[in-house]
């Protein structure tokens, strides 16, 4: 765990502490609450400035909910979102109301997954990309046009395109528009939620390279949410692996891929089909069963029904996320005993 004396603390741009989001399940005429979907259950996550943190996990693990909580699209049920404002003071975004959030809205932006449904078909690129400039900065039209032209150029689109509508563009180009819109207000943190998942292989690589270039140019910090472990490895400096609403492992990317500490991470890495010719001989771990239902989380360690290393203790006792090695945390009772297999070498 990161403590107040940790030197790395100074560079954290954003940090969550015990972030929790439960969605009530309502039923019947009066909307009686009959259960809770525990989408996030006590998330501690640290995002260092200028870095890319990759958030991986399968559908339903809460990774998108986490991104949305950081943007305060969702109101967290409990916990803190400590954001370091440009002047250095920490602000708890989870405690602010709409009015109080306003100054921070322009500093944390989102890139959406689907480039087709996330752009309004009745707006031109100028309107789409220029809208945040108009609303947040109150710029006049000539200035907006100038800024939009510059933004389009930065994401690799021709400025002349600004008067066209989204339907004139391919998926990859639309995603560039989505990126331009996210960057319009010079944010400090960009949450990319499956930003390349809807794209074809070659276009995906173009967008990944673009995101990397933009990060270098303007010292952006990314929270890169993806289910694709190959893509995350390419993008991220640090990784957090989620399973059913919890972070089960964190660590520096290369170390985590080379030697995972949590059995779920091992299984995920092993399940990725890899085009490298040598990987065919690799022995694979195929997990039993399916991802647990976040409204009926198994007792003890949520991963225990699928875990090959599970013991009696795992059925009853919830493992806490703890430091196993410097910079490495895992939520597994046996993390320091298991010798798990990574990828590479």
């Amino acid at each position: 765990m990161v403590t107040a004396t940790d030197p790395r603390q100074a560079t954290a741009l954003l940090e969550t502490r015990g972030l929790t989001k439960h969605f009530p399940i309502r039923q019947g005429l009066f909307g009686r609450t009959v259960g809770q979907v525990k989408a996030l259950d006590g998330i501690d996550l640290r995002i260092a400035g200028g870095q890319t943190v990759g958030l991986v996990g399968e559908s339903g693990c809460g990774k998108s909910t986490l991104g949305r909580c950081l943007l305060r699209v969702h109101q967290p049920t409990a916990g803190e979102i400590l954001y370091r404002a440009p002047d250095g003071t920490p602000v708890d975004l989870a405690a602010l109301d709409e009015q109080g959030l306003k100054p921070y809205r322009s500093q944390i932006r989102l890139i959406f997954q689907d480039p087709y449904s996330s752009l309004n078909p009745r707006m031109t690129l100028l309107q789409i990309v220029g809208e945040p400039l108009k609303v947040n900065l109150g710029l006049a039209r000539p200035e907006i046009e100038e800024r939009v032209a510059e933004l389009l150029r930065r994401v690799g689109l021709r400025p002349e395109y600004m008067h066209r509508y989204p339907n004139a563009f391919s998926g990859g180009q639309r995603q560039r528009v989505g990126i331009a819109r996210a960057l319009a207000l010079s944010p400090r943190l960009v949450v990319a939620d499956e930003a390349v998942s809807a794209l074809d292989v070659s276009v995906r690589a173009q967008i990944l390279n673009l995101l990397k270039d933009l990060q270098e140019e303007s010292e952006l910090t990314y929270l890169f949410i993806s289910h694709d472990l190959g893509v995350v490895e390419y993008m991220a400096d640090e990784i957090a692996v989620m399973y059913v609403g919890r972070v089960v492992e964190t660590g520096e990317t290369d170390a985590l891929y080379a030697r995972p500490l949590h059995p779920y991470t091992e299984a995920l890495l092993s399940a990725v089909p890899d085009p490298a010719p040598s990987s065919r001989r690799r022995e694979r771990i195929v997990l039993r069963g399916e991802v647990a239902d976040p409204s009926r989380v198994p007792s003890g360690c949520p991963f225990h029904p699928r875990c090959f290393y599970a013991q009696d203790r795992c059925k009853t006792e919830v493992p806490a996320l703890r430091e196993i090695a410097p910079g490495r945390t895992a939520a597994c009772h046996f993390a320091d005993q298991l010798q798990l297999r990574g990828v590479g070498e």
Binding site: S170, G172, Q173, V201, S202, V203, R204, A205, Q206, L208, N209, K212, L229, G230, V231, E233, Y234, D254, Y257, A258, L269, V272, D274, P275, A276, S279, G342, V343, G344, E345
Partner: peptide, 19 residues
């Protein structure tokens, strides 16, 4: 265009240009 898993090299991807 495909990142190599576990390569650790972060070699820049070389996608097909255009579309």
């Amino acid at each position: 265009s495909v990142p190599k898993l576990g390569s650790g090299s972060r070699a820049r991807l070389t996608p097909v240009r255009g579309m």
